[in-house]
């Protein structure tokens, strides 16, 4: 009896990590955009949905394999992200917070329902692009898909880490997020940096979309709403604007959700995520890795 619970516990941890790594990928986009523009990009979840659809079309129509599909989705979605930023968010950069937020939610609705209009609301079945191999570690089951998801996430995060820490663009991104005006005075092209951030964040969300398509097998136009909100919670949990925080937040959220749905009830899964959000906001609003800022007049 006891060993059964322990096995289930570890099984849920493994499921949670693979789910959490997807949340983390989406959360990275949220956190980077927020760090630079102070904008909660509510459309980010829908960008991830578009990624899943791009993945679906290149695998079914063009018969691409997993890696080409992943890269293809990342490129297409990265470009889409930049277009959205240029057309919609850029003119609003100096507006009030509430109007930017309304626009972001409007954009999210627009993407959802346009996709629904053109691609019908029916869920589609993702083709099996990865073998259904299952590994047994004792009593714990790990699927090949979970390993691929985890592996791709780790590689993408390392890549992101390299870009942000060691390239010139990454340095510019950090400078803009630290102080936009000062960065502008130092000759950094803030517009380019913001576009680049959107491209990077959207590409990661696109990759997450393909990975989710493979993991859950079905995709639909409204699939982005809940993961979008959850990824945002993950970003807040880790400390919004902080890249390692988003990774950590995503993993914690994934594991907690898996444990709640495994041991309590899967209907309380979403409530648990929001509960985490409320608790973290009340105890440490700047997130686990955030620094407290003093209030200035």
């Amino acid at each position: 009896m006891d060993s059964g619970i322990i096995v289930q516990f570890f099984q849920q941890i493994i499921n949670g990590i693979s789910l959490g790594s997807i949340y983390a990928l989406i959360a990275l986009g949220y956190t980077m955009v927020y760090g630079i523009m102070r904008l909660i990009n509510f459309a980010h979840g829908d960008i991830y949905m578009l990624g899943a659809y791009v993945g679906f079309f290149v695998t079914t129509q063009l018969q691409m394999g997993f890696f080409p599909a992943l890269i293809c989705a990342m490129v297409v979605i990265g470009i889409t992200g930049v277009l959205i930023e240029k057309l919609v968010y850029k003119p609003l950069r100096s507006s009030s917070k509430i109007s930017i937020l309304i626009t972001a939610i409007g954009m999210s609705l627009f993407i959802e329902y346009t996709t629904m209009y053109f691609l019908t609301p029916q869920p589609r079945t993702f083709p099996p692009v990865l073998p259904n191999t299952i590994f047994h570690l004792g009593d714990i089951i790990v699927s090949f898909q979970q390993l691929v998801i985890l592996g791709s996430t780790v590689v993408l995060m390392l890549l992101l880490w390299y870009i942000v820490q060691y390239t010139k663009m990454g340095k510019a991104m950090r400078a803009v997020s630290y102080d936009t005006d000062a960065a502008l005075l130092m000759g950094i092209n803030v517009d380019h940096v913001i576009s680049f951030t959107f491209a990077l964040g959207s590409a990661l969300a696109g990759a997450a979309g393909v990975l989710v398509g493979i993991y859950y097998n079905t995709i639909d136009p409204l699939m982005g709403i809940m993961p979008g909100l959850k990824a945002f919670i993950a970003a807040v949990l880790g400390g919004i604007g902080i890249i390692p925080g988003a990774m950590m937040g995503g993993l914690i959220l994934g594991v907690v959700e898996a444990l709640v749905s495994g041991f309590i009830s899967s209907t309380f899964r979403d409530a648990a995520a929001f509960g985490i959000l409320i608790v973290i906001l009340l105890i440490k609003p700047t997130g686990l890795l955030g620094k407290n800022e003093t209030e200035k007049v």
């Binding site: 626009t103 409007g106 329902y113």
Partner: peptide, 8 residues
């Protein structure tokens, strides 16, 4: 959604 975006 379009109306909202345009309004903003």
């Amino acid at each position: 959604a379009l109306c909202l975006i345009l309004l903003m």
